[in-house]
């Protein structure tokens, strides 16, 4: 099931593994040089300087107490630490919790929201669910067309208004239609927006209020899409979106490149938002459940 994630991370794993094995090879004790190089490897994975320093401080404390620190324990130690951090909040996703189950997709520009919607819709269709897409990005040129192409690919109806219209209006129509047509899942697209733009974040709040009005209790999931190539700014993105509308989970996209997406560690740690899915390519199949174990295993190898 997590084979693809494993494959995608294999390069990373090789590099990291080589890195860690290189480090450990021939070392009898853990010295400053070893720690510095280890720090480099973790920083290079975008874990962020604060998280890395915290990890290393814990490492230092624990290993200091042992009489003869053994470098080969570094690997196990780091894996366990990261796993504990990432598993604090389970990333489960129960689409049967409500009918229709409403998922709202948000994020900054260019992270892959529309593509992820296509993949998610495909997955729900595969589970035999009736899925409706709502074209809530009425701002960007051809965003509606892009969603329609995905709708045709995965055979889902798309509710849309004209480009430039009020996104809340199309969302209201979409949810009403879903109720009337007895859909199981509704996925709502929204325009990409910088988390620093006050008015656009207010617009998002309004959309959320409108959803609750059209279908009380919705949206049932609010997913923040994060690009794995993004660095520490992802923390700021997650913080602002979470503060504005309450994010229930993260989808980490573009993990099939060389970027490692390590910034999800501080996001889970500091904001308590779990990663729920990972995107591994451009095909409709390229979406996987997030597994902290595989993510960490993938990073460090065995």
């Amino acid at each position: 099931m997590f084979q693809r994630l494993g494959q995608a991370l294999s390069k990373t794993r090789q590099r990291l593994k080589a890195g860690i094995e290189d480090l450990i090879l021939g070392k009898k004790t853990i010295d400053a040089d070893l720690i510095e190089r280890l720090e480099g490897i973790l920083l290079g994975a975008d874990l962020g300087v604060r998280t890395v320093q915290r990890l290393l401080a814990t490492l230092h404390d624990r290993l200091d107490r042992r009489e003869r620190p053994d470098p080969s324990r570094l690997n196990t130690f780091l894996k366990t630490e990261l796993l504990t951090l990432l598993e604090k909040k389970p990333g489960r996703f129960n689409a049967a919790a409500a009918v229709p189950f409403v998922v709202m997709m948000v994020g900054v520009n260019g992270v892959g929201k529309t593509t992820t919607i296509g993949k998610l819709a495909h997955r729900f269709k595969g589970e035999g669910k009736a899925v409706l897409l709502v074209a809530g990005d009425t701002f960007r040129a051809a965003a509606i067309e892009q969603l329609e192409v995905w709708g045709q690919r995965v055979h889902c109806p798309v509710v849309k208004h004209q480009s430039g219209s009020d996104p809340s209006a199309v969302i209201f129509d979409g949810l009403s239609a879903a109720k009337a047509r007895g859909m199981d899942v509704v996925i709502v697209d929204t325009a990409g927006r910088m988390h620093t733009k006050f008015n656009l974040m207010e617009e998002l709040k309004k959309m959320k209020r409108v959803m609750d009005k059209a279908l009380p209790g919705s949206p049932h999931e609010t997913l923040l899409i994060l690009d794995a190539t993004t660095g520490q700014n992802a923390l700021s993105q997650a913080g602002r979106f979470h503060e504005a509308i309450g994010v229930t989970g993260v989808v980490l996209t573009k993990l099939d490149g060389t970027a490692k997406g390590g910034v999800v560690v501080p996001i889970t740690e500091e904001l308590g938002i779990p990663v729920k899915w990972v995107g591994l390519g451009e095909g409709m199949e390229d979406l996987e459940d997030f597994s902290a174990r595989d993510f960490v295993e993938g990073l460090f190898g065995d």
Binding site: L43, G44, A45, D46, V108, G110, D227, A228, T229, T230, G231, Q232, N233, A234, G257, T258, A259, K260, V263
Partner: peptide
């Protein structure tokens, strides 16, 4: 290039 890119840049 995206200004928000991390170490992968």
């Amino acid at each position: 290039a995206d200004a928000m890119t991390g170490q992968d840049a």
